[in-house]
Design a protein around this nucleic acid. Structure first.
Lengths: 355, 355
DNA sequence: TTTTAGCACTCGCATGGACAGAGTGCTAAA
DNA sequence: TTTAGCACTCTGTCCATGCGAGTGCTAAAA
């Protein structure tokens, strides 16, 4: 389909006006706005054709025009300017990342909060590793004869621990021995490879009769499984209610319900590579999002770590601005994570030791 | 103020009818419901007096009656039956607690989810320790020359860790020595007692020139501070929208905004001892909750651990039922936590090792 | 003194008509 | 191809009307 330059200008103007005002846009309003040197009747004719092309629609016969999902799509693909991030926003983002945060999960959560703040839209984020997560290093910390701590360093650089209290007695030497055995036999293995046979072999090697080996192995399996089950964090779900399209409670509830469901969020499509993906209205597979839009950025923080961060909002949103901020935040986050994995978040705490 | 038995009966019936229907209650409806052997006119007279007493009110002159906050208060204090937990619900709660969960934080979060499910109201929960949290045990796990893990067992039985990566080299022996020094000098101390002098002393004792001691101490301080900053978890905020009083988006937004703010939630009053506290409408100090109610239970899980779990909802709620479920869940949670700290969550994972 | 039947009264809410305003679509001329 | 002009359509608001629910009051009954 071929659409004239003027039609494009008009479509762009309709969308930008509508995004700003939430009101159907009239031919007269455009005439004032566009300064094309043509009358409102001409614009009316063009709008009428844009409507036939399925890019605009009328809420009712004598109302102005409103973009359709297809209209937004054309806008996003061809017409929209590169949104930019203002100096103040960039500063705010920097500041958001400068605040000390404990561990990768926290950084991702902070980035999501920041996104919510800068877009006024609910934001979601999740971080994943390519391939399977394995244990890299085990440690068993003796606390007392009935208590010890399991510490596992995972291949995605996250550290997990469990406090174990048992009725049976476990000596410090036993733990030392077991930790060595686990480090020898179970590092680099993914969860399904921790078979009963291997565990039994370790138990024999340790000369363990109390079943501590099995208990520890159980926790390790649990940890690996929980890490495999990717965690999603959602920030600022309530912001949705600030947008007029969600003043209808039922509609808001559908989307908020969707956001509250981690499993669903995981199924949202992500960009193929680094960059931003935009899904407009009915382009969303999820029924609940059919009248909303999703903008999501993917980032790669090296070291086998990657993740996505996105927002959900009304189809009437400033896609350029949102996409720009999102990708700015995503790359900032990627930097922070990459830095964290080489320089250590030690930097952060080391700085202000004395207060 | 003295109110007759019949007035009490009528007040109770008005409240229970209104809670069920969300519609103002008429004298005729009560006549059918109560079977007092009196006419609607008599009931009307009583209702009129209850209105003068400030226990009921009329939305408009010719409407039925609706309870006031004071009315609910009298109901809660004197009239309401002991809500009970059905067999199915008890089973569901049990089941909710049986699911394996990792660590105390997770158990509390699960209990909050369960509460949300059983009350259809947003639920919040937080766990605190009496007095200051101190470190009980330190461990430093060597990963490679530039990487190690700090593991701290806290007095509230939670284990925290940090992965540290430094540009400088730190040998395994150094870490072992440092861990011993930290265990000797810093256990049992609260955050403000980790003074610069003590840290410097440890640094000298360790012969540390690279500043690792300071980095570790920094993390420990951070961990203690974060633990002191109590964490609140909120579940099912969206459920609020299911109640007709929150079909007004602005009103819903106020309360949801409040719930999203951890700092605010921390300021909510808690019951003085074990038991349930109910705050009705304007009894709430927080402006945002002035037209909502809060029901909150406190539990004590021994071992210096205690916490609260509560719900926020419309003043029109079934206080008896909510309070009963809440205290049932709270005591279940207390049990689980107490068990966890003696028998170990080891029990949980130990069970199903082979699948 | 308390209860009750009866009735007038009030108020909310739904319905329908009238009207103004916004914006379009179409036609005929430039 | 553009435009001026005009008829047409649809929304939103206002007002009047009527209905129904429920009360408050009064005067009689228990």
């Amino acid at each position: 389909m071929e659409i004239s330059g003027r039609k494009k200008l008009i479509l762009k103007a309709v969308i930008e006006d509508y995004v700003a005002s939430a009101e159907p846009v009239s031919s007269k309003a455009l005439q004032g706005r566009l300064d094309l040197g043509v009358s409102s009747a001409t614009i009316r004719n063009e709008m009428s054709e844009l409507t036939e092309l399925g890019l605009l629609e009328q809420p009712h016969t004598s109302a102005g025009r409103v973009p359709t999902a297809t209209g937004y799509r054309v806008y996003v693909n061809e017409l929209m300017g590169q949104g930019d991030v203002s100096r103040e926003e960039a500063a705010e983002i920097q500041q958001g990342f400068d605040a000390p945060s404990a561990g990768f999960e926290q950084m991702v959560a902070d980035a999501s909060k920041l996104t919510n703040k800068l877009t006024a839209l609910p934001s979601y984020a999740m971080q994943t590793a390519h391939g399977a997560v394995t244990a890299q290093r085990f440690e068993l910390v003796y606390v007392d004869d009935h208590t010890f701590i399991i510490v596992v360093l995972l291949s995605n650089k996250s550290v997990q621990n469990r406090l174990v209290t048992l009725p049976t007695t476990t000596k410090a030497e036993t733990l030392t021995k077991l930790a060595a055995l686990f480090n020898a036999s179970f590092t680099g293995l993914a969860e399904p490879e921790l078979t009963v046979e291997r565990i039994a072999a370790t138990e024999r090697a340790a000369g363990d009769v109390n079943g501590v080996t099995a208990v520890i192995a159980g926790f390790v399996i649990e940890i690996l499984m929980q890490t495999k089950a990717k965690r999603t964090v959602v920030s600022g779900a309530t912001s949705l209610l600030g947008h007029p399209e969600f003043h209808d409670v039922e509609r808001a509830r559908r989307v908020l319900g969707y956001l509250a469901n981690e499993q669903e969020l995981l199924r949202l499509p992500a960009p193929d590579s680094d960059g931003v993906k935009i899904m407009i209205g009915p382009e969303n597979l999820a029924e609940e999002l059919r009248d909303s839009s999703v903008v999501v950025a993917k980032y790669d923080a090296g070291d086998n770590m990657q993740g996505i961060i996105g927002v959900v909002g009304p189809t009437r949103m400033d896609y350029g601005k949102v996409a720009a901020r999102l990708s700015y935040i995503a790359s900032g986050l990627a930097n922070m994570l990459a830095m964290g994995s080489t320089l250590g978040s030690g930097e952060i705490a080391g700085g202000d030791l004395d207060e």
